[in-house]
């Protein structure tokens, strides 16, 4: 067994062990922390699969922002576990369920083991048409050109998720400040960190968005890091969360899908198809769209993590 194989196997074991921990652990908080650790490990697996764009997304969203969301939820839901514990199905049911789940796993494992290598692929097709998109990163080309509709609709999903979260507000708080009220302690290490990290984070985020056209990276990963920086500032109480009635906030939230849609419609006129880019302008247009998408993502993610408005704006 070579070193790399040993490394892969131990990584897989570690991933599974942490995953099992998040399922069986008694304490919800411990399970959530396990899940954050799991996300970090999975992004290592993605690097091993040579899918760096995915690794970046997993690190930013899968473990980073999701982790924060779940950690604060676990803290707020402290003490609800005991009541729910009575609803556990009996041991027999659990064994049966585990057995049935194992059948599903076995079927998938059989599929994995019989998968041909090399397998079916669209990589040659993507390579052939990559030049037409003027991009260097094939994943960005798929997201922004070949399968642009899916990316556009995914941005609409994000937009709808924000509406969904907001719509849970109490009627009187509509238009108010997003998220629960926070204490006003501005002292301490947290505030220091919140002043230290964002400048670095903003530079890194811009870098990741910019290189996304040619190297791994892109709007979502960069936007997620920007979002994290904004959330740190809000959490450290250096800035107030925005009121959801604010015009600027709303425009920032729809800017990404709206600009994408507008550029797509422009394709009717200048490139004879919806979501097509005119030759010679593809890359600048894609970067243009990505800038607005980054903005929308950077604003949407904090809205999703903060939750519905909890008090009217003053």
């Amino acid at each position: 067994m070579s070193v790399i194989q040993a490394l892969d196997i131990s990584l897989a074991v570690l991933v599974l062990a942490v995953a099992i921990w998040t399922i069986v652990s008694r304490d919800a908080f411990a399970a959530v922390v396990g899940y954050v650790a799991y996300g970090l490990l999975v992004s290592l697996v993605w690097v091993r699969l040579f899918a760096v764009d995915v690794a970046l997304t997993e690190a930013a969203i899968g473990s980073g922002v999701t982790g924060v969301l779940l950690i604060s939820a676990a803290v707020r839901l402290r003490g609800t576990e005991a009541a729910v514990a009575a609803e556990w199905p009996g041991a027999g049911s659990r064994v049966l369920a585990a057995a049935l789940c194992m059948v599903v796993t076995a079927a998938l494992a059989a599929v994995v083991l019989t998968m041909p290598d090399p397998g079916a692929t669209l990589a040659p097709e993507a390579a052939r048409h990559l030049a037409e998109t003027e991009l260097g990163n094939p994943v960005t080309a798929v997201l922004m050109a070949f399968r642009a509709l899916d990316t556009l609709l995914e941005k609409v999903v994000l937009f709808l998720a924000v509406i969904g979260v907001w719509s849970l507000a109490a009627d009187g708080n509509w238009g108010g400040i997003a998220g629960p009220r926070r204490a006003t302690n501005r002292q301490g290490a947290l505030a220091f960190l919140a002043q230290l990290l964002p400048p670095v984070g903003i530079v890194v985020a811009i870098h990741i968005v910019w290189i996304g056209a040619n190297e791994p990276g892109g709007a979502f990963q960069g936007g997620a890091i920007l979002a994290a920086m904004w959330m740190i500032v809000i959490m450290a109480r250096l800035a107030e969360a925005p009121a959801i009635g604010e015009r600027r906030l709303r425009l920032a939230l729809v800017a990404g899908p709206a600009v994408f849609l507008a550029v797509g419609l422009m394709g009717f006129a200048v490139a004879n198809a919806f979501l097509a880019y005119p030759a010679g302008l593809a890359k600048p247009l894609i970067v243009f769209v990505e800038v607005f998408m980054t903005l929308s993502i950077a604003v949407s993610l904090p809205m999703l993590v903060l939750g519905p408005p909890d008090r009217p704006s003053s």
């Binding site: 980073g64 982790g67 950690i71 890194v204 959490m235 450290a236």
Partner: peptide
């Protein structure tokens, strides 16, 4: 960046 962010969230919540 995000590992630091997770810690901030913990301290905060």
């Amino acid at each position: 960046l995000l590992a630091a962010f997770a810690s901030v969230a913990f301290v905060n919540s």
